[in-house]
Design a binder for these strands. Structure first.
Lengths: 116, 116
DNA sequence: CGCCTATTTAACCTCTGAGTTAATTAACCA
DNA sequence: TGGTTAATTAACTCAGAGGTTAAATAGGCG
């Protein structure tokens, strides 16, 4: 997972409007009009948000006459989620190793008596 | 997981320098100097990045004389990762239901013969 | 064709984010 | 006490994100 891909994904996910759009799309395809409806925001603004989502690969767009229906694409979400959870796992493994190490130290100390 | 929390987390993760700092911290605590070392960037710049990470709850800071060692905090990473993967799951369940529905349609069609 | 609908592009504004250098605070050390 | 190291704050620049309105494009429809 290259860094600029993560950049694009996390940047796209950082905006609440865009997350709301994704939430809406999780219920199925929608046109720009439909997506814009819940927001107090102009159509061009929504159009820009969609472009950000598209560049991040989080949505793809079809064509239906003059409509450009959007659909959710989950691949980048998976990558981002896995990145985050991989990180958590790394950290927890490290804590475990640290814990083992401390216990080992304590064991050694018992054998040779308290240091101080 | 409130929206502004996700905002802060994803915003913090959107920057490659900050992700690199987190990666470094996954190997253990580090001071600001140590964190700054790999980057061609001034200390105040790093200091600002750390503030962003701290506000997002992704790091916490201790005190050791004049040093302010940073340590990784995984809670927001977990939340963000779970958010992303929950989303993926929702979508895939939806696809499954859609699939069931299509198969049901096809079954009905067989019983009453092709429509056209 | 001429009009209506859906969407994008253009041009612009404003605010924020990432970076800078210079100055300040905080804590140790001789 | 004065000097040095670690880190932050202040004041500034610059670019880009997110928003606007108005104009342009694309594709039915009478």
């Amino acid at each position: 997972m290259p860094s600029d891909r993560l950049d694009a994904t996390f940047t796209a996910l950082a905006d609440p409007t865009r997350r709301a759009i994704l939430a809406r799309l999780a219920e199925g395809e929608a046109t720009v009009m439909e997506l814009a409806e819940p927001f107090a925001m102009s159509l061009p603004a929504i159009s820009k948000h969609l472009k950000v989502l598209e560049r991040a690969g989080l949505i793809s767009r079809g064509r239906d006459a003059q409509r450009r229906p959007c659909r959710l694409e989950t691949a980048p979400l998976k990558e981002a989620g896995e990145w985050a959870e991989h990180f958590v796992r790394l950290w927890e493994e490290r804590l475990d190793r640290l814990d083992d190490y401390l216990q080992e130290l304590q064991g050694a100390e018992k054998k040779q008596g308290p240091r101080k």
